[in-house]
């Protein structure tokens, strides 16, 4: 604390370097310039941002993947990450699922008046760290401030561009009967971590979000020449929604094997207590890959070399049964239908 600050209480006017976001921070004037210059630009420190131009000018060879996503999460900080890690990794993962090497991100902040500047600083640093880990650049951005009560603290949008590295198209249309379904790790950590943090459930074990960039394991599969037919990261709606969406889009049947699906004990216990199906619980660092059956073993081996996919396993296969049907064979050999979540996940009564 400086000497001046110690006497701040004698002054009825708040210091201009407020500790919370004010409307002026989005007004396009000095306050906004200061917020960007002192918090956002230095954290992201990219040559494109330093040019202080209206947009980034980038050169990319060949086909690109382009995606955008908006991030709203409560609480903004949760065990294992915050809205910043989510916003960077989420868009990186969407690019990776297209078979692209993620390169550039844009960032749009919508700040609610009253948001703690310290929290914004934390989120920005998280974004910088996540981008550095994944080797992507944050090259352009925007900041707006909305009135108190008109936002939920902080909303973040990121858009991303990646260079396509997959030799052949990746998507549901390329599924073939017999393809193996590979899951990159255990289910449900993100959804349960956020639910526990939001609802104050007070479980004894702290489950952390699985939020992580998935480009490295995906690119490793492609580089190794694995015939990857389709990829999908598991976010809201969990494994069930991803599998059903793909089965519907591809017009095929997917059969899963419950005993092969990795689960951690804490998430299993939380789901049992709350009456949630782990297949429906959100993830932020897991994906499913559909690969030619003969390459499945090698694909799993490659994935397991990456810490984020260390528990990768073959969990099922594609068949030419009825379009859009997903089933899961349970521990006693009886198959059950898997469907998308209807509405919001709601804990049961007893």
């Amino acid at each position: 604390m400086t000497g001046g600050d110690q006497f701040a209480f004698t002054c009825p006017v708040p210091a201009s370097d407020a500790d919370v976001v004010q409307l002026a921070h989005g007004g396009g004037g000095r306050a906004m310039a200061r917020l960007i210059d002192t918090i956002i630009r230095p954290a992201f420190s990219d040559a494109e941002l330093e040019r202080r131009h209206d947009g980034a000018v980038l050169g990319i060879d060949g086909a690109i993947a382009f995606t955008t996503d908006s991030y709203v999460v409560r609480p903004l900080v949760f065990p294992g990450g915050d809205i910043g890690t989510l916003a960077v990794n989420g868009t990186i993962n969407d690019l990776a699922m297209c078979g692209a090497q993620p390169l550039y991100l844009s960032v749009g902040f919508i700040l609610e008046e009253g948001l703690a500047i310290d929290l914004l600083r934390r989120v920005v640093i998280s974004m910088r760290t996540a981008a550095a880990v994944a080797g992507v650049r944050l090259v352009t951005g925007d900041t707006k401030v909305v009135d108190r009560g008109k936002g939920d603290g902080l909303f973040v949008n990121t858009a991303g561009i990646g260079r396509i590295v997959a030799p052949s198209p990746i998507g549901p249309a390329n599924l073939r009967p017999g393809d193996a379904v590979i899951l990159s790790g255990d289910l449900g950590r993100h959804g349960i971590a956020v639910m526990v943090a939001r609802e104050g459930l007070g479980f004894e074990t702290a489950i952390e979000s699985d939020c992580a960039p998935l480009a490295a394991p995906v690119l490793a599969l492609i580089e190794a020449g694995i015939p990857v037919h389709c990829l999908r990261d598991l976010t809201r709606g969990g494994l069930a929604s991803a599998a059903v969406e793909i089965a519907e889009a591809a017009g095929c049947t997917i059969a899963l094997e419950e005993s092969a699906i990795p689960m951690c004990e804490e998430v299993t216990a939380a789901c049992e207590l709350l009456g949630l199906d782990p297949f429906h619980v959100a993830n932020e660092g897991r994906f499913i890959a559909f690969v030619a059956a003969e390459s499945a073993g090698r694909a799993v081996e490659i994935l397991r070399r990456h810490p984020v996919a260390a528990a990768a396993a073959v969990i099922g296969e594609v068949s030419d049964g009825p379009a859009g049907q997903v089933s899961c064979r349970g521990p006693f050999g009886v198959a059950r239908a898997i469907d998308m979540l209807s509405g919001e996940q709601l804990p049961r009564i007893c």
């Binding site: 009825p322 049907q325 997903v326 089933s327 006693f332 050999g333 009886v334 198959a335 059950r336 239908a337 469907d339």
Partner: peptide, 9 residues
């Protein structure tokens, strides 16, 4: 139970 042809042990 919407998947047809479910089988037992």
């Amino acid at each position: 139970r919407r998947a047809p042809a479910v089988g037992g042990v």
